[in-house]
């Protein structure tokens, strides 16, 4: 298991329990959707994977290594975290500086080459000298992904990657993500995006994992969906055996 959470408990400083008892394993190369209603603790869980938050009970292991003060820096290089709002992720004045930010912090070799390859991987080659606020929202989302790809992370954690995208940008993003050779955990409300990209889904509700199985089976089961306050877009009905 490249990611493993073992009985993780996390309570926010104001006493709100976010994760009550979460155990989860993800194998190398898997693409997993993390689903659940608002406030279920999905983003909190994602922040545990690169050590921004630490469990108050239980353990988080990334690539077999326990996430501790000593290992957190290396963990962050291995786990690329892409935030929901690209304006939070893109903090440097130009795209090139932003994509180079991680590799320069880690003193990785061939930074210009890494920047070019990362931008090419998301279809944004040639945008290096542009300012992030001059890009469209969809372009900014793709550049945000390039900012972590330049660190060669084995694991990509995406928070709501398809939110606020128009249909064409959403399709382009799906093409970019399917082309990447990484383990992926995707926090999302977009069930069809999850179906398209992630064979496996995990449902988090009230701080616990309530479902862990094939995405298609979950989305075809109206009873399960209703229980977790998940809904497919109007008029969409899935055949559990299709695809």
């Amino acid at each position: 298991m490249v990611i493993s959470l073992d009985h993780v408990v996390y309570v926010y400083p104001d006493g709100t329990p976010a994760l009550r008892d979460v155990s989860l394993g993800i194998a190398a190369g898997e693409r997993v959707a993390l689903l659940g209603p608002n406030g279920a603790g999905k983003t909190t869980l994602a922040l545990h994977l690169n050590g921004v938050l630490r469990p108050q009970e239980g353990q988080v292991r990334v690539a077999g290594r326990l996430v501790t003060d000593d290992t957190v820096r290396e963990t962050r290089r291995q786990v690329g975290l892409v935030f929901q709002d690209p304006d939070d992720q893109l903090f440097m004045p130009t795209v090139r500086q932003d994509v180079a930010f991680g590799p320069e912090n880690y003193r990785l070799d061939d930074v210009p080459g890494r920047v070019e390859r990362a931008l090419a991987a998301v279809g944004m080659q040639g945008a290096g000298d542009r300012a992030p606020h001059h890009l469209s929202f969809g372009q900014r989302r793709r550049v945000a992904i390039a900012t972590v790809l330049s660190m060669d992370p084995g694991i990509l954690v995406l928070d709501e990657p398809s939110s606020n995208l128009d249909p064409a940008s959403r399709r382009e993003l799906a093409e970019v993500l399917t082309g990447l050779d990484v383990t992926m955990l995707m926090v999302t409300h977009d069930l069809l995006f999850a179906l398209q990209l992630c064979p496996r889904s995990v449902v988090l509700a009230e701080g616990r994992i309530q479902y862990d199985g094939p995405t298609r089976e979950l989305l075809a089961d109206a009873g399960l969906l209703a229980r977790f306050r998940l809904e497919l877009p109007y008029g969409v009905v899935l055949d559990p055996t299709d695809g």
Binding site: R76, R77, D88, G102, V148
Partner: peptide
């Protein structure tokens, strides 16, 4: 609040207090 989120994004990519500006 955005500042807090930007800080999270900074530390997630190995920020240690120095900005690399060529």
């Amino acid at each position: 609040e955005r500042g807090e989120r930007v800080h999270l994004a900074l530390v997630s990519r190995g920020y240690d207090g120095r900005l690399p500006v060529p």
